[in-house]
Design a protein around this nucleic acid. Structure first.
Lengths: 345, 345
DNA sequence: CTGTTAGCGCATTCAA
DNA sequence: TTGAATGCGCTAACAG
């Protein structure tokens, strides 16, 4: 039942009438080879349908021409966009991208880092679920591999592609303030990761510049789930007084929950309540009314991430590792129809 | 700048005062080893933080303890659920799952199959984008690896986990017929893949059993995008006569487009038009009105897929490959608030 | 420019 | 049960 015998460099060399080393040279493409030799080898490769054994290659070269991406939740469409564009760049350079979902499980993160770190990949793109977890940081550093942090705090090691969430939240809050809102709720995923902290700080700065103070009960940073956001929103809307006149919801899934809760309450957007969402998702664009939202160029982030890693791979041949680079993606507010001045009380 | 020198079996053997072979034996766990020896080796492993080199392991053993999953679109939440549960089972068995997105690009599919097929993984989970593409089928078969088709037609080789989409569409259509609808539109992704074909056949069967005939202009199977679905729906709703009184939309992203178009038209659900959607997404559950939808146990599908592959891995030690297995997942209709009898004309 | 050769780290024979 | 010895398929260093 063996489908095919493995064909090796030796078979190719024999058929092409050259040495094994020469075959390797044309495969790797790193050395000069005469056109004639190359042609013969390539013909033999094609005829035999030779495919190099990645394990043997990796064993000798200590490289695997692969990158791992660790994401918390593989089904988040924002991650999907990022990964797809990163993969495009990597695959154009001959690298594979292995995507693994950690499902926000700390142990799983460690396992994956160790599994990938022991030679399976040449570098990693990481968006870990808790930046306070020292063990994850340590494990990453100990791989000795180029690490690219995606939307996580830059470290003393590794590079980072980060998003200016603080600015996004600042602009969003300012916009609502300029419309006359004073009671603005903020929903966003956890403060254990950079996006959460940054958003909160941008929100806070905008309020303070307007001589307002953050009301803790208007801020919820308890996880990314739509169900949680639904509950939070219901509670916010139930209040008789100090009901928020605007909600900034900076989570893709969460937004669905917020909208559902508002729908159910019978309040109308934007007359009764203003909404600012996140991303360029179907929901945001097509909802009625369409949702004003902060956005950034996620595909560009993915491309940058890939390019930085590729750069690292090429320079590790040289002796001097340059300093960690940080690419910061700007965030803008896309105005749509979900915001208006609050009702006169 | 080298972070750590690689520690090898030899280092462990030296520290434990045993032979290299013995270390290997305790690592693989396949041979009997005295407790004393095992203890010494394990201590040394821990002390040195030894991690086996997967390339060296793979080179000798011809196994990689990894599985690749090829999906068309990594950001589809239905895929995410499937992959997360498959990964859970695989990782419990010590296998890694590499997820790669083909973005519905045929060439990319072939590249990935070849890249993974040449030793990087022990098996693959595949949902290819066009079942008519013989080259993809051929490439899969030629890997000689256990292949698991996900929601694709079972082949002469490989196993399959499929969903009874025909039944789902049949039940959905019947339900609408029973409410009195006669003019029912069907939107679903491509007929180039099994789900599309099956859904169409279920829809058709239900209509025919009611002595109705499929009207081609009520059926659209042109791709999964929400934008396309939006356009299609707008056109459907624009018709003065023979405007459908119900729409069955069997695509996750598409549903967003359909709902947006309906919103825009000013029609109300379910009074003016009934809707049947798909999946257990936020949108379906939380939309107002909530959307009646077909669903199946996606997580179970993922688990089955993983289990079947694991089974294959263990039996390949034996000589007789058993026949391809096919797991068929039932589909049910979850009744919510988006369907009602059509208005009397 | 090309052939020859020596391992990469490990699993697995063969002896003992 | 354990140690010694042999490649797995390939890359790279060294000659020529």
């Amino acid at each position: 039942m063996a489908t095919k015998q493995r064909v090796t460099v030796l078979d190719v060399a024999r058929l092409a009438g050259v040495s094994q080393g020469s075959v390797s040279r044309v495969i790797t493409g790193k050395n000069w080879v005469s056109d004639r030799l190359r042609a013969r080898v390539e013909a033999a490769v094609k005829q035999l349908e030779y495919k190099p054994n990645p394990h043997a290659q990796g064993l000798k070269s200590l490289k695997s021409r692969a990158v791992a991406a660790l994401v918390s939740d593989i089904s988040n469409p924002l991650h999907g966009t990022f990964l797809a564009s990163a993969e495009e760049v990597l695959s154009a350079a001959g690298y594979l991208l292995f995507v693994s979902s950690t499902n926000n499980d700390r142990d799983r993160e460690l396992e994956l880092i160790n599994a990938y770190g022991s030679g399976r990949v040449d570098g990693m793109i990481v968006a870990h679920s808790d930046e306070n977890n020292r063990r994850v940081i340590k494990a990453l550093q100990e791989t000795g591999l180029p690490i690219l942090f995606h939307d996580r705090e830059p470290r003393r090691f590794g590079d980072a592609v980060i998003v200016d969430h603080a600015h996004g939240a600042y602009v969003a809050t300012n916009y609502l303030l300029s419309l006359g809102h004073q009671c603005i709720a903020l929903l966003s995923p956890s403060k254990a990761i950079r996006p959460g902290r940054e958003r909160f700080s941008g929100y806070k700065r905008a309020l303070e510049e307007a001589n307002l103070v953050v009301q803790d009960d208007l801020v919820s940073m308890l996880g990314a789930s739509d169900a949680r956001a639904y509950d939070v929103t219901r509670n916010l809307l139930k209040r008789s007084r100090s009901r928020p006149t605007a909600i900034i919801c900076l989570g893709t899934q969460m937004l669905a929950g917020v909208l559902a809760a508002i729908n159910e309450s019978g309040l109308s957007i934007p007359d009764d309540i203003s909404i600012i969402g996140i991303g360029e998702t179907d929901l945001v664009r097509l909802y009625k009314p369409s949702i004003t939202a902060v956005k950034w160029d996620i595909a560009a982030c993915g491309r940058h991430a890939a390019q930085i890693l590729l750069q690292r791979f090429s320079e590790s041949n040289a002796e001097k590792p340059s300093a960690g680079s940080v690419v910061r993606s700007p965030v803008e507010l896309v105005l749509r129809d979900s915001c208006a001045a609050p009702r006169k009380q």
